[in-house]
Design a protein around this nucleic acid. Structure first.
Lengths: 132, 132
DNA sequence: TCACAACGATTACGCTTGTAAACATTGCTG
DNA sequence: CAGCAATGTTTACAAGCGTAATCGTTGTGA
């Protein structure tokens, strides 16, 4: 195979906030054209189509999405999974603010009442399941 | 008076990553001079004293810290509490990535095994306490 | 066939961030 | 008293980001 076996330098080029908004659409749809992405986000963020195109280009450069030609346009689809991104971001936060201890994050959320009764029950259920 | 009396628009000017590193020192010490801050972070981040000074200035501008003259130098101290910052950042993450549902974050951490056995026990204990 | 519309690509531009050097002030030491 | 050293202030500058406008190409409808 041509793919060099060990060029996994894969340093996951940071995705910016605006870019992330675009990614969400692609994760949701799986695949979309620039116009379709715009339909979803341009209202919300008061963007123009041009802005969306710029963001898509940057995401391609960063290796976060890929393009497939579809007639005269491109269809864009994610190359990295949402879970991967979410995991990375969560980890960054936990590392930066909680010394890497995820439990500290949870503790903080609980203390500051960022967790509702429902949240607490939900987590409790989750724990039970994980522990069985 | 030239200083407008009611500019308490207190929108908490975003603290950048590098600035945050400086804040951590101030939160830890309570108060410190530029040189003292540098002693703590300049090794770790390979910064020069000049860099620390810039960051301190920016933090002052942003209203995140205050200065008190101490002889020929300044002592810097935090104006916002660490908990406040941490809470804000956590909330931002939860809003952006988990639709505002903190429980989803916890679920994600659990699923991706970002939570160790110890973490889980800890959280469990926490929950019990909160529910008393 | 020809202007136009739909696209991606290129270029733009001001703001923030990271990282610092240069400058100005001033207490201190020889 | 004259430099020097320590300190804050000002200026710098490249990269990244948010937000687009403009350019170039090409399928399409009149």
């Amino acid at each position: 195979m041509t793919k060099s076996p060990d060029n996994n330098a894969e340093k996951p080029e940071r995705i910016s906030e605006a870019e992330h908004a675009v990614m969400e659409v692609l994760w949701d749809r799986g695949t979309a054209s620039a116009a379709q992405v715009c339909e979803v986000v341009c209202q919300k963020r008061e963007w123009s189509l041009a802005t969306v195109k710029t963001l898509l280009s940057r995401l391609v450069q960063k290796g976060a999405i890929e393009t497939r030609p579809d007639g005269r346009r491109f269809l864009y689809s994610p190359l990295i999974a949402r879970a991967e991104y979410v995991g990375g971001e969560s980890r960054r936060l936990v590392d930066r603010l909680f010394g890497g201890k995820a439990a500290s994050l949870v503790a903080h959320l609980a203390e500051t009442e960022a967790l509702s009764e429902d949240d607490l029950s939900e987590i409790e259920a989750l724990l039970k399941e994980l522990k069985q």
